[in-house]
């Protein structure tokens, strides 16, 4: 499968998962949208199978906290929201990846999804040197990004 075939389905499942699971509604990123310099949460998951690869999700910190609050049924300022922001982003990526793999390869194909790893950093979106295909969306004008790549993940 060529890299260019990854983005469309990945964008669609991301919109679906974020709205269904976390009540986060994505819009298409408007052309000429400004880059984002922000505290970011980044989650990456790898998958093995006939076609191995990796998917990365990058969200601004405040969107990660909003996701955690919505998943937990809590208010954004509640004590455990920030503590669960990383776990929330990892779990959302897990959900997105399961759906994306099914869309890309079909449920009859064999693959094995790894565990998400989550980190936090000051960073810039769009990523300056992506290793895969980028999908950029907006949640309340905040830029979020997914990056998908096929090939060896070692």
């Amino acid at each position: 499968m060529s890299q260019v075939l990854l983005a469309g389905p990945l964008g669609e499942v991301t919109k679906s998962v974020l709205s269904e699971a976390a009540f986060l509604f994505c819009d298409e990123l408007s052309e000429g949208a400004a880059p984002l310099e922000a505290r970011l949460v980044e989650a990456t998951i790898t998958f093995e199978g006939a076609t191995p690869g990796r998917i990365t999700l990058r969200l601004p910190w405040h969107v990660a906290c909003e996701a955690a609050a919505n998943l937990l049924g809590a208010e954004p300022g509640d004590d455990d929201v920030e503590a669960n922001a990383h776990a929330a982003v990892g779990e959302l990526l897990n959900m997105i990846s399961g759906s994306a793999l099914e869309r890309w390869f079909g449920s009859g194909s064999q693959w094995s999804l790894g565990l998400p790893s989550v980190s936090e950093r000051e960073g810039r979106l769009p990523s300056s040197a992506p290793r895969g295909e980028l999908v950029a969306l907006a949640i309340d004008d905040a830029r979020i990004e997914l990056e998908a790549s096929l090939g060896s993940v070692t």
């Binding site: 897990n94 959900m95 990846s97 399961g98 759906s99 793999l101 099914e102 449920s107 009859g108 194909s109 064999q110 693959w111 094995s112 999804l113």
Partner: peptide, 8 residues
Amino acid sequence: VSAERNAQ
């Protein structure tokens, strides 16, 4: 309850 969607 899983993100697993692999039929096998």
